[in-house]
Amino acid sequence: MNIAETLQEKLLSYWEILIESIPRIAISLIITTVFILIAIGLTKLFRKKMMQNAQNKLVVDYVVKLVKFFLILAGIILGLHTMGLTGVAGGLLAGAGAGAVILGFAFKEIGENFLAGVILVFDRPFNLGDTVTVEGNMGKIVSLNFRTTQMKTFDGRDVYIPNILVITNEVYNHTQDGFLRLDFVIGIDYDDDIQKAIKGITEIVNTNKEVLKNEKTIVLIDEFAASTVNLKVMFWVNTLDYKVSALETKTEIMRTVKNYLLENKFGLPANIQEIKMYKPEPIPIILKKESDAIKFTENN
């Protein structure tokens, strides 16, 4: 028997095996596809139902992702078993523990971030939609993934922070309980009545319906600047929307305070600029009165 005949027999043998395996392959693909569709459908329904009444939506979102992952993995293993690849399927299950150890060494960072994500789920330093500051990034929490925490900043950027950095650094949650203190600084003239300004600003701030009345509004002298006495205004609001509601409230109060000071003849001077001339020269000044113009030179 020559090489050509041997090769032909091998190809025919493989072809027959493939034809015989087509039903099993088809059934395997169907089973895997069904499991994937079930995983997508169930987790979508589970997320929708649980999100409505969940106190911590971050936990629900993370658990849904885990359930989806394991359902798809189960579908793949069952599909392999149906195809007759029982050894492969069994190897996936039997080697899960050893594989986890190997992957832990090979992908140390991935393993650390995954475990950090699990810790964040139980520690719960923030919820979905909370405004937080992490690693100098400030924005709303969009999702907690297996490796990263996704944040949407107020200028529209999506920031993905490794979970390990979230649990090893300070996390500032600005909206966990909706209890926020806002502040701003405004300057008045040195000749103005400071006590009158403080009293008037305090009354103006307290008239805003968004300002908490059970927390004291404070107006203090913040700084004696070059041309102004700077007053720091501090007040409390109760809102979970740091981006819109809180900033809109602050803007409205600042506008009202400015109008109050102008209406009551308080000076809002600009910064004074001092110009030093190291080589004094005559400065021409023109004074205009009606149609006459007098030009004279003043020496420094």
Rank of each mutant, 00 (worst) to 15 (best):
N259Q: 12
K140I: 10
N230T: 00
F224E: 03
F46K: 00
N299W: 12
E252F: 02
A246T: 07
N2F: 07
E112W: 08
Y160L: 15
F224P: 00
A4S: 11
E263I: 05
K258I: 09
I253K: 02
T249Y: 04
A94I: 14
Q195I: 11
V205P: 01
V166R: 03
E210S: 12
I204A: 10
A226C: 00
T32H: 01
E248H: 08
V134P: 00
T131M: 04
L103E: 06
I17M: 14
K199V: 11
I25L: 15
I27N: 02
K44N: 14
N113T: 09
I275S: 01
P269A: 03
V59M: 13
V211G: 04
L144Y: 05
R47K: 14
G139D: 07
G87Q: 08
I76S: 08
L7Y: 09
K57H: 10
I186F: 03
T33A: 15
N264Y: 07
I204D: 03
E223I: 03
Q52T: 15
M83F: 11
K243T: 02
I72Y: 06
I36S: 13
E298M: 11
K209V: 10
F296G: 10
L11G: 00
H174R: 11
A98C: 08
D158W: 07
D183V: 06
L42I: 15
K10M: 13
V60N: 04
I141H: 00
G156D: 14
G156M: 06
I275V: 14
L220N: 13
D155K: 08
D193E: 13
I283W: 07
L78H: 03
N53E: 14
D183F: 13
M151T: 06
M277A: 09
V229E: 01
I25M: 12
L165T: 06
I38Q: 05
R124K: 15
A4T: 12
A116Q: 07
K209H: 09
L80T: 08
P280V: 09
L287K: 10
V171K: 03
T207V: 08
S21E: 12
F266I: 06
V142H: 04
A270C: 00
L29H: 06
K288E: 11
E9T: 14
T133N: 11
V142S: 10
F69R: 01
V63E: 06
I204P: 00
E170Q: 14
N300C: 05
L12G: 00
I198M: 11
E109R: 13
A293V: 15
L182R: 07
T202P: 01
G84A: 03
A94Q: 03
K276T: 12
V171F: 05
F154Y: 12
I36E: 02
G267N: 02
K57C: 07
K57W: 06
L247F: 04
P125D: 09
G84D: 06
E252T: 12
R255T: 14
R181L: 06
